[in-house]
């Protein structure tokens, strides 16, 4: 693994963001729309219901910010790859001395930077607009943040592998994949609130123990170690499988001669 190469690939994206401010808007606009809509809804519910709904803002806005971490991490990987496809630069990268691990690592870093920007903006707006301070969520949430980001990377690799396999016709997967799992990973509700038959499915995804653990931390102020270890264990499996899938699809496209067609279409 060569860090010079990873930094060069990251630098390319930094140049891109610095040159086109509209990309920054994209990073901030949709999260803000979500934040304002959900923020207003939770304020409305809170004003028109009894005290037991008092923690709604905390739960909803917290869940939304955490969901955005997952989504941005996944996007960092998938959109970085698509940028190379859209600009017909993919061949230049694949014929340069860049290892697959270096290429993927650079997309992870881009994903992390996207999260950082989105989180700072959302935290500021939720603090100013709804008096919701993200830091009241306790520092115990940091390991959950990190796990969510890793799961986002795994989803990003899966999305990218599918796009590589099925071509540009499958581009929409770059946005759709996280939403395929959203209903079952209990972002905004507890596992026990789901139908009984779907509960075992929910526990197959690292995001479920993360969101359950987050609610536990917010409720009790103490760490939910069981949830954290389960999320970390599942993440190791997901990250390994996603990495294997990406490399397998890449080799398959090389074997079938699809890589050049895909990269120059």
């Amino acid at each position: 693994m060569n860090f010079r190469i990873i930094s060069a690939l990251v630098m390319r994206h930094l140049f891109l963001y610095s040159r086109t401010p509209m990309r920054m808007v994209e990073l901030v606009f949709w999260p803000l729309v979500d934040l304002v809509v959900w923020g207003n809804v939770t304020v409305f519910i809170q004003k028109n219901s009894d005290a037991k709904f008092g923690g709604f803002i905390l739960f909803f806005l917290g869940a939304m910010i955490l969901w955005d971490i997952l989504f941005r991490a996944q996007q960092g990987v998938a959109i970085s790859f698509l940028e190379d496809v859209w600009t017909r630069n993919l061949l230049n990268i694949f014929v340069a001395p860049v290892r697959t691990a270096e290429y993927l690592s650079s997309t992870f870093v881009v994903g992390f930077l996207r999260i950082l920007i989105t989180c700072v903006v959302m935290s500021l707006v939720s603090w100013i607009g709804y008096s919701f301070n993200i830091f009241q969520l306790q520092w115990w949430l940091v390991p959950f943040f990190l796990n969510l980001m890793v799961f986002g990377w795994a989803l990003g690799m899966i999305s990218t592998a599918l796009i590589l396999r099925w071509g540009q016709a499958a581009e929409s997967l770059a946005w759709a994949v996280p939403f395929f799992i959203q209903p079952v990973v209990c972002v905004f509700y507890r596992v026990e609130d789901m139908p009984a038959w779907s509960q075992p499915i929910a526990w197959l995804f690292p995001a479920t123990p993360i969101f359950e653990g987050m609610r536990e931390v917010m409720k009790t102020g103490s760490m939910s170690w069981n949830h954290l270890w389960l999320a970390a264990g599942l993440n190791v499996i997901y990250l390994s499988l996603a990495g294997w899938l990406f490399v397998w699809v890449l080799n398959l496209t090389r074997k079938r001669g699809l890589l050049t067609k895909f990269a120059t279409q």
Binding site: R12, F15, R19, N89, N92, P97, T264
Partner: peptide, 25 residues
Amino acid sequence: FSSAYTALPGNLLVWQNLLVFARIY
């Protein structure tokens, strides 16, 4: 390698593209 059918990212400046590849190599 250079091909008439590939391109350097069109949204970057020429020096930025060349600097990225210079660092890669």
